[in-house]
Simulated assay, not measured.
Amino acid sequence: MTNTDAFDAPLTLDPDAVLLLIDVQKGFEDHEFWGPRDNPQAEQRMAELIAAWQATGRPVVTVQHASTAGPLVEGTPGYELKDFVADVTPALHITKTVNSAFYGTPDLHAWLRERGARQLVVTGIITNVCNETTARMAGNLGYDAIFPTDAMHAFDMTGPDGTTLPAAELARATATVLHAMRFAKVVTTEQVLDAAEA
Rank of each mutant, 00 (worst) to 15 (best):
F28Y: 05
A51Q: 14
A91K: 04
D107L: 07
R118N: 07
D107I: 08
T4M: 09
V24Q: 14
V88K: 01
N131Y: 04
D38M: 07
P15T: 12
R115D: 00
H93G: 09
K96T: 02
V129W: 08
Q64T: 00
L141V: 12
G142T: 08
L120W: 00
T97Y: 08
L141Y: 12
P77G: 05
P166V: 14
A180Q: 15
M137I: 11
L141Q: 10
E114C: 02
L19T: 01
G159Y: 10
P77A: 06
P15M: 08
P106Q: 05
H93F: 05
D87V: 03
M181I: 14
M46A: 07
L165I: 13
A168C: 11
A42G: 12
P71I: 09
L49C: 04
A91E: 06
A198P: 15
K96Q: 01
G142N: 06
R182A: 14
T149L: 13
D16T: 09
Q64R: 06
G104A: 04
D194V: 15
F147R: 11
I22E: 15
F155K: 11
I146A: 11
D8T: 13
K185D: 13
D83R: 11
E169A: 08
A173I: 13
D83G: 14
T158K: 09
E197Y: 09
T76L: 02
A66N: 15
R172P: 02
Q41P: 06
L21Q: 08
V61W: 02
A145F: 00
T123V: 02
I125L: 07
G104Q: 04
G116Q: 10
A198T: 07
D107K: 05
H153W: 10
D107A: 11
L120Y: 00
P90T: 02
A117K: 06
T89L: 11
Y143Q: 10
D5C: 12
A101G: 15
F84N: 04
T68F: 15
K96N: 02
K96C: 07
A151G: 00
Q44D: 12
D83W: 10
A52W: 00
T174D: 04
